[in-house]
Amino acid sequence: MTTGPRDRREGCPAAAPAQPDTGRRPAPARAAVWRQSLSVGIATGTYGLSFGALAVGTGLSVAQACALSLLMFTGGSQFAFVGVVGAGGGTPAAVATAGLVGARNGFYGLQTSRLVVPRSWPHRLLAAQATIDESTATSTAQAALHPERPELARLGFWSTAASVFALWNVATLLGALLGDALGDPRSLGMDAAAAAAFLALLWPRLRSATPLTVAVAAAVVALGCVPVLPAGAPVLVAAAVGVAAGWWTR
């Protein structure tokens, strides 16, 4: 729910040993897709626990935390949403921040719509909601690994989305109930935990000089705006650093 497709080496042609099954042995390839989907789902479950606990720690109800995981269903945006709400930001700032963090899903849809090939509007709407980091990563990896078997890319997309959806939502509920039972979020260091969660989400994206520079500049701009702007606004102002850097660098 949090890392881009390039962070999932599993299933990439370069990382996998040469596999001779090109259609004659359909079962192993399908089983491998299911195994990968399940392991990705279990991994995101741990993020879901953190999300549920942090959401309740910032003042959302258990039902609101669960609604975010069911309806928004894109982890980075969900963390960003509770971050802005926790800082005292208003509805417009929380909505805008969540939407901007989720912008990459629009780009994923371009790729996955060609792999999933939805044939009706209900199908298309369901595929759109299922378009997240993990389903995109699994389906594009399968498309690269088995270009002659598009059904594996489709299977990877839906099986990963289903696995992540189930485990992410169960984990959110458990985390929210746990957070609710634990009590005072500040004495438990939940505010620091939220900061660490954002850093861990950011970490895999800092692999070259440009994103690193953008990250430092955005942090400085955001803190510079804290004394003069209402809560939530400094984060949105810092987004301009990313826009400017993306527009003028190459």
Binding site: V101, A215, G246
Partner: peptide, 10 residues
Amino acid sequence: LVTVALLAAL
């Protein structure tokens, strides 16, 4: 880069 900037600001 907007995602990077937003996460860093958060």
